[in-house]
């Protein structure tokens, strides 16, 4: 399954190679700079992101779209909701 088939991604944050909590922190920074409604994908090779991003999205009030397994990394997609 591919996020690209589901939604249009406005911004990709490539955090591959970063360790926990690096990808989440990079995503938060990018979300802050984005407009409400924007869809952001963070690419991560570390195992915490797939768990941390949905927890953060729920807490921060953003829409968690999903974790999509790619070749050797995860693409984790959220929509900025506020």
């Amino acid at each position: 399954m591919d996020a690209a088939n589901e939604v249009r991604i406005d911004r990709v944050v490539d955090a591959r190679g970063s360790f926990c909590p690096g990808p989440l922190m990079e995503l938060i920074r990018a979300v802050k700079e984005s407009q409400v409604g924007d869809v952001l994908a963070v690419l991560s090779t570390e195992s915490g992101s797939a768990r941390d991003v949905p927890a953060w999205a729920q807490k921060a009030g953003h829409e968690f779209i999903g974790v999509f397994e790619k070749d050797g990394y995860n693409e984790i997609v959220v929509r900025k909701a506020r």
């Binding site: 909590p21 989440l24 922190m25 927890a55 953060w56 807490k59 921060a60």
Partner: peptide, 11 residues
């Protein structure tokens, strides 16, 4: 440092 990061991520 990592706990601090997680905490600020959750506001």
């Amino acid at each position: 440092a990592i706990m601090a990061s997680g905490a600020v991520a959750l506001g």
